[in-house]
């Protein structure tokens, strides 16, 4: 049986959750079209994690264990994938459209002459088993339905979070695979890493988003968020300027929210931003420009200066 592979991303043993959602989607497709679903896990001393992948949809796991695979480096990861693909000839390989998933898939596509559907939000096959996906563009408000033309393997990266993690039963075999070549990267070396705790706001119930209207002062936004039990998010320029971590940036190059309530302080409503709030239930925005495009994307559009209104609101909330 031909195989659909899912690249199970991990970093120092922590599995990337969006990879697990993709396993579930792959399983659905596998059952519909007769493919075997294989999780491909590169890492170090994480056989335990490999064993759990069956619960999320994998029917088999290729596990490659090496100290050189503990963190992502594209030289070794690519070499391992190149070798695995030649050895097992999968039909399809799916990646999460994370930084690393995009980094790796682009290189594999050129190496194997593969069609690559990027950042898809829907995925299926046509009647000749060519992969078909919906690819958002122009900031995320227009999408193209794109098909891979007869290449094998065929590839897709999937926007993180579009497929929920599902739980499956049944057997899953973990195969330990040992490449016969040296896995130490030769051409590039990661010499230092600096990481804080990364916060995932993609599933937060309530989010307060600060835009450039805050002038980079996140004090008010944080205080408001804290009082209503919300998480903090920002627009891209604030992350660019280093006022906040890229991890809490909302939009097409950040996270997509699914919150019940989003309160937006001083953001203009550019397409690359508004695609990130499409799935929020209720959007309240505050902007001093009555014509700001964010108006169209708001349930409640408050025309005012945030530095006038938010301190007063905070007072009321504090009782």
């Amino acid at each position: 049986m031909e195989e659909i592979w899912v690249f199970i991303e991990q970093d120092e043993g922590i599995i990337e959750e969006s990879s697990l959602g993709i396993l579930g989607k792959a399983r659905e497709l596998g059952e519909k079209y007769g493919f075997k679903v294989v999780g491909v896990l590169l890492g170090y001393n994480i056989r335990g994690a490999a064993e759990t992948l069956g619960r999320f949809g994998a029917e088999k796991v290729y596990y490659i264990n090496s100290e050189h695979l503990s963190i992502y480096n594209n030289e070794t990861y690519f070499r391992v994938f190149e070798w695995l693909i030649q050895k097992y000839k999968p039909n399809t390989i799916l990646f999460s459209a994370t930084r690393n998933g995009r980094d790796l898939s682009g290189r594999i596509a050129v190496r194997f002459g593969s069609g690559l559907l990027a950042h898809v939000i829907e995925l299926d096959y046509d009647d000749e088993y060519n992969l078909v996906g919906k690819v958002p563009g122009f900031g995320g408000n227009i999408a193209a339905v794109v098909r891979c033309i007869k290449s094998r393997p065929q590839l897709a990266t999937i926007t993180p979070g579009v497929f929920d993690v599902q739980v499956f039963g049944g057997e899953c075999k973990v195969e330990n695979i040992e490449p016969r070549f040296d896995l130490e990267p030769k051409r590039m070396k990661i010499v230092m890493r600096e990481r804080g705790v990364s916060i995932d706001i993609s599933k937060s119930e309530k989010v307060v988003i600060a835009g450039m209207g805050t002038g980079g002062d996140l004090g008010l936004a944080k205080k408001l968020a804290q009082l209503i039990g919300a998480e903090l998010g920002v627009t891209r320029p604030l992350a660019d300027m280093g006022f906040a971590s890229r991890d809490i940036q909302v939009g097409s190059t950040g996270v997509s929210l699914k919150s019940r309530l989003a309160i937006i302080l001083g953001a203009s409503g550019a397409p690359h931003f508004t695609s990130g709030i499409r799935d929020c239930d209720i959007v309240i925005s505050i902007n001093k420009d009555p014509e700001a495009p964010i108006k169209e994307y708001s349930d409640y559009f408050i025309v005012s200066d945030i530095f006038e209104v938010i301190p007063r609101l905070i007072k009321l909330l504090e009782g």
Partner: peptide, 22 residues
């Protein structure tokens, strides 16, 4: 090319209330 576009679709933003408060 290794891919082809079948069609374009609009990802419509949800209908918002657009209540304006001044």
């Amino acid at each position: 090319s290794k891919t082809e576009v079948i069609e374009l679709v609009e990802l419509r933003p949800p209908r918002r209330l657009r209540k304006i408060i001044t």
